[in-house]
Design a protein around this nucleic acid. Structure first.
Lengths: 262, 262
DNA sequence: GAGTGGTCTAGACCACTGT
DNA sequence: CAGTGGTCTAGACCACTCC
């Protein structure tokens, strides 16, 4: 076993044993750790980079290395979909009160900041197949970023696609200044006569790309969930496709599967 | 921007542009890349380590650096639960044919190898609360590893917990040599008079711990799904808790949420 | 044995943070 | 300004893969 691995193992063990509390500063790379482990600086740094990649340690330039604190997580359930459907036909007053994200997180609307960007695009192979339309069909692409009021970086990025010809059934749907829309996508679809039958979510997990790390403000040692949500109407037609990126260190997803009785 | 970041960006762009196909070998660190970017070896290696952490590049000792190929993924659906419930009361002959993993993956039983380890343990705070039993209650802990016949490392590790007093209602349930059990856990519960009402899965994503990377044979730049599956019987009681670790680069999870009609 | 990546050293200099 | 981490160099030697 390499020296840097031994050092990483030793530090990991000591951290787990509670020698340093979460948030506490580790000894400095130079001169403390190099002296303690009787080795050169690059070797110490290599050991620490292993722990940073595991999410055990936060490296902070100019301040030191710290034991990473667990992040407060945002729970995202699949019950939000039925909940949103039930609200879709309610009065605007009711719909205004809470959105699906607030429903999941228990936060109030004022804690969160949304930003929406709309543009028209053409269906590629992938989306054309899903929607069952020819490649090149006009789509409405809507990008949403949600963040906490007191933070700089969004904690989720969602890109939603609708067939443009369908969406234009209600001119307000093409207008980003109408966002955030009270009642969410299911109410929007309701205004153009669409009822959802089911929602399918496909989830993968991987390290963020350079762009995602940048945009979500992710440190090394954080994974992302990549979620594709596909909404089907009551005729089995795909009516909305949404790609959502969520930081793994602050998201917990909960799926409840009810079973038929014997 | 640091020199190694520029090099990483440049290589990432060239890889995305298809300059090297998936699986192709990149130029050697020395002397090719050091000469091309007119820099020292450690700087080149730092750039490559960034790409390895993103999962873009595979570093292979003694052979070279390669463009990482997408892994063939194993799909895991939540429909497996209803499927397994429907089978739980079928004849052994029927149950023998296929298990839930084969149902999801489309593989046959003979492609997969299972290993089961059983032991008795005591409920900690966490599990005691879930099961609604006192801390220290005897639990049956069952660890399962599933792997492809032709591979060395398992692609999933599952640790299942049952209350020992409940499980001993059928002595066969305490015997690891009965595994793999035709019809899975839901049939096992059926033999002791338990019917499931719903299954709740809580999912997080993060980089693997050192132990997980070791046990699942994960390369740097792979995330894991950590899934806690909680099974409730028809009286609302928790009857099984299962913690599953799945490699993010070869697992896709699919959850279908049916919605009630208006 | 040739080619290639992995580890490690010793030290210089830069950049960021807080007093 | 002192303390601390970030980048980079030049080179030595080891370990793995494949012919």
């Amino acid at each position: 076993m390499a020296k840097y691995e031994k050092i990483a193992d030793d530090l990991r063990t000591r951290i787990r044993a509670g020698e340093w509390a979460p948030g506490a500063k580790l000894p400095s790379e130079t001169p403390e750790l190099t002296a303690h482990y009787k080795t050169s600086l690059p070797t110490i740094r290599q050991a620490l980079s292993v722990l940073a990649a595991e999410g055990v340690v936060d490296k902070v330039h100019g301040r030191g290395n710290f034991v990473r604190k667990p992040r407060t997580v945002v729970v995202r359930t699949n019950e939000r979909h039925q909940w949103e459907k039930d609200r879709a036909r309610q009065s605007e007053q009711t719909r205004l009160q809470t959105g699906a994200t607030e429903h999941d997180t228990g936060l109030t609307v004022s804690d969160l900041v949304f930003r929406a960007e709309f543009r028209e695009t053409e269906a590629g192979e992938d989306l054309a197949t899903l929607f069952g339309v020819p490649v090149g069909t006009a789509l409405l692409e809507r990008t949403y970023r949600t963040r906490y009021q007191e933070e700089d970086e969004p904690f989720n990025i969602a890109r939603s696609y609708l067939v443009h010809d369908v969406a234009k059934g209600n001119a307000d749907l093409l207008d980003p200044s109408q966002e955030p829309w009270p009642g969410g996508t299911q109410n929007q679809l309701f205004t153009i006569g669409i009822e959802l039958d089911r929602i399918v979510e496909r989830i993968t997990a991987r390290p963020p790309t350079a762009e995602e790390a940048e945009e979500l403000g992710l440190k090394p040692g954080v994974s992302v969930f990549v979620l594709r949500k596909i909404s089907y109407d009551t005729s089995g037609q795909v009516v909305e496709v949404s790609d959502v990126t969520l930081p793994g260190d602050r998201t917990e997803m909960v799926f409840t599967t009810p079973l038929n009785r014997w």
